[in-house]
Amino acid sequence: MPLQAFGASAPLSLGVELELQLIDRLDRDLEPAATELLARLENASLPGQVSPEITLSMIEICTNVCDGYGDVLEQLSFTRDALLAAAAPLKVDICGGGTHPFQQWTQRQIYDKPRFKQITGLYGYLAKQFTVFGQHIHIGCPDGDTALWLLQAMSRYVPHFIALAASSPYVQGEDTAFQSARLNTVFAFPLSGQAPFTLSWEEFGRYFARMERTGIVAGMKDFYWDIRPKPEYGTIEIRVLDTPLTVQRAAALAGFAQCLAAWLLEERPIKPHADDQLVYTYNRFQACRFGLDAQLVDPQSNEAYVLGERLPALLELLMPQAERLGAVPALQELQQLVARREGDADWLRGLLAGGRSLPGVVAAACERWAAAD
């Protein structure tokens, strides 16, 4: 089957997906409550949808197509409140964060859905280990060539998204020393990482056809790339972000993505090149391990720099786009994050350092998710 035509969407429109943790109120471990929770939401009128994810202790919420930051925040806030109301009778709490701090992957249960069973059959234990939680951001593009150009240009900013969203310092009861340990699980899948370098939708179609002939893939969902095109939506999808601890931070990150895309497409400040891939994996690792303190290498000049020292200038550079798109509060929130050097991973670590147990850390994350602002 040939790759489907790229379905044009409104340029710079947004869509956000958040994978969320379902938490038992007593022991603060993950609770396999997705089936019951989804049943309670079956007739709810939501701005978007709530769907199962690969294991029973997680769900995914999705917005409808949004114009910008304010629309994303409104939709996510509405859905958050509906989820909390539906989960309360089940004695289940909900929280963000890229990993659960102490859950054991061996205890997870696969959701009864054909695609999830197919993934389990192919990837074995990795399917249960895939109980990690990310934010995906869709950005609308008018055509396939524009989508691929934006995908390659955005790839230079993958470390920025990782560092700003990092919220997964703990895995199975241990401090990993990573800001985003979640991505180590994602990287275990063979079709993860960076998309191949091409700026032509026609050429990408030929690549997809070769991959399909191997039997490795049947559709775009089989690629777990950090950024991938979604022709059925007319978007590119950024997939490297941990789920933040609040809907406010999730909306701010979507606003940042929209402003960055607008600047890249309007100014064309860089020329995507295949050589960008030479430092891509190194830069991505640095951001996962060290967050804002990551030591990155510019792929063209080979200059080394500290991510957190460059981010303030980038955020200020994007303010004209933010003013036009209504995303000034989004960039201001991220400016404060960078200035304090305190993202979600740092906040979680601070709780443990302050004397909380790991279950106490989860309880605080649930409280933070439920907070109205």
Score class of each variant (00 low, 15 high):
54 I>R: 04
54 I>A: 07
54 I>Y: 04
55 T>H: 13
55 T>C: 14
57 S>T: 04
57 S>A: 12
58 M>L: 13
58 M>F: 02
59 I>H: 01
59 I>P: 00
60 E>T: 08
60 E>H: 08
60 E>R: 07
61 I>K: 09
61 I>R: 09
61 I>P: 06
61 I>L: 15
64 N>M: 12
65 V>K: 07
65 V>T: 15
65 V>D: 03
67 D>Q: 13
68 G>E: 03
69 Y>L: 05
71 D>T: 08
71 D>S: 14
72 V>I: 14
73 L>I: 10
73 L>P: 09
74 E>Q: 15
76 L>M: 10
76 L>R: 10
76 L>N: 10
77 S>Y: 07
77 S>M: 03
78 F>V: 13
78 F>I: 13
78 F>A: 11
78 F>W: 11
79 T>Y: 11
80 R>Q: 04
80 R>D: 02
80 R>N: 03
81 D>P: 03
82 A>M: 09
83 L>D: 03
83 L>E: 06
84 L>A: 09
85 A>D: 13
86 A>L: 12
87 A>G: 03
87 A>D: 03
88 A>G: 02
90 L>R: 05
90 L>T: 07
90 L>C: 07
91 K>E: 15
92 V>I: 15
92 V>D: 08
95 C>T: 12
95 C>E: 05
95 C>D: 06
96 G>W: 11
97 G>N: 06
97 G>H: 07
98 G>S: 12
99 T>S: 14
102 F>L: 05
102 F>H: 10
103 Q>N: 14
103 Q>L: 04
103 Q>P: 00
103 Q>K: 04
104 Q>N: 11
104 Q>A: 10
106 T>Q: 15
106 T>M: 06
106 T>F: 08
107 Q>R: 13
109 Q>W: 01
109 Q>C: 04
110 I>F: 13
110 I>N: 14
110 I>W: 14
111 Y>D: 03
111 Y>L: 07
114 P>I: 07
115 R>V: 13
116 F>Y: 15
116 F>D: 05
117 K>V: 00
118 Q>A: 14
119 I>K: 02
119 I>M: 15
120 T>P: 00
121 G>C: 02
121 G>K: 08
122 L>Y: 01
125 Y>G: 00
126 L>I: 02
126 L>P: 03
127 A>Y: 07
127 A>R: 03
127 A>P: 04
128 K>I: 01
128 K>Y: 06
129 Q>A: 13
129 Q>S: 11
129 Q>I: 02
131 T>Q: 15
133 F>W: 05
134 G>F: 06
134 G>D: 01
135 Q>Y: 04
135 Q>F: 06
135 Q>H: 06
136 H>G: 13
136 H>T: 12
137 I>L: 11
137 I>W: 01
138 H>F: 01
139 I>A: 08
140 G>A: 11
141 C>N: 01
141 C>A: 11
141 C>S: 03
144 G>H: 11
144 G>P: 10
145 D>Q: 08
145 D>F: 09
145 D>I: 07
146 T>L: 00
147 A>Y: 09
147 A>H: 09
147 A>P: 04
148 L>S: 05
149 W>V: 07
151 L>K: 01
152 Q>R: 09
152 Q>D: 06
153 A>E: 02
156 R>N: 11
156 R>L: 15
157 Y>W: 14
157 Y>F: 15
159 P>H: 06
159 P>N: 05
159 P>D: 08
